[in-house]
Simulated assay, not measured.
Amino acid sequence: MAVGVPELKIERVRQNYLANLVAAIACFLLEAGWYSAFMDTWINGIGRNRQWLENTGINPAIQYGTALVMASIMATAISCVTQLTGKQTALRGIKVGALLWAGFELTTLATEYIFEVRPISLFLVNAGYWFFGMTLMGAIVGGWKKKV
């Protein structure tokens, strides 16, 4: 080994697919409750009405399936970062979820919303959901250790 060159330690990430799926489902259920609670604010924020929402012609199974698959991918990413940054705990998972939210979701949404001149109320609904969703997924994937 060369002098002054740090040794590279390769960490092994072990995915707990059941924990990732449970985290994704929990996030999905949170989403259903969140957007039900903030439906009027959300629908007004996107400049639509309930009638439009009911008559989009989009198959709800595609919408819900997409939401669940994307939450699964996000749970897997949160799990990876949680494991790569230290001991796998629920608190670390929450911190990783919050950090990834602040670094990627919050910044992306804020940039989009300011250029699209969207209402702050819509920003708060969408960003708030992702904050709680990502920290919830972090708690689950961080706290649920796979039995060896």
Score class of each variant (00 low, 15 high):
G33T: 04
R50S: 14
R118G: 07
I25R: 15
Y64T: 01
Q88V: 02
S36L: 12
F132K: 12
R14Y: 10
A75R: 09
N49A: 04
S36W: 13
S79N: 05
L100Q: 14
R48P: 15
V117F: 15
R48H: 10
L122Y: 02
N44S: 12
I73C: 08
M1G: 05
G47K: 13
A75P: 00
L84T: 01
F115E: 05
A110N: 07
V96C: 05
K145N: 12
K146A: 11
V13F: 03
P6S: 07
G133T: 11
E112N: 10
A98T: 00
M137R: 13
R48E: 09
G133I: 09
A98V: 00
V96H: 00
T82D: 15
V148Y: 02
Q15G: 11
W144M: 00
M134G: 10
T108H: 02
G103F: 05
Q63S: 05
V148D: 06
G86L: 02
E31K: 03
T82I: 02
A102Q: 01
A37Y: 09
N44P: 04
L8P: 04
L29Y: 07
E31H: 13
A24N: 00
Y129S: 06
L124K: 04
A98M: 03
L106K: 04
K9L: 04
L109G: 03
A19C: 05
K9E: 03
G45V: 03
E116W: 12
Q83H: 03
Y64L: 06
G86C: 09
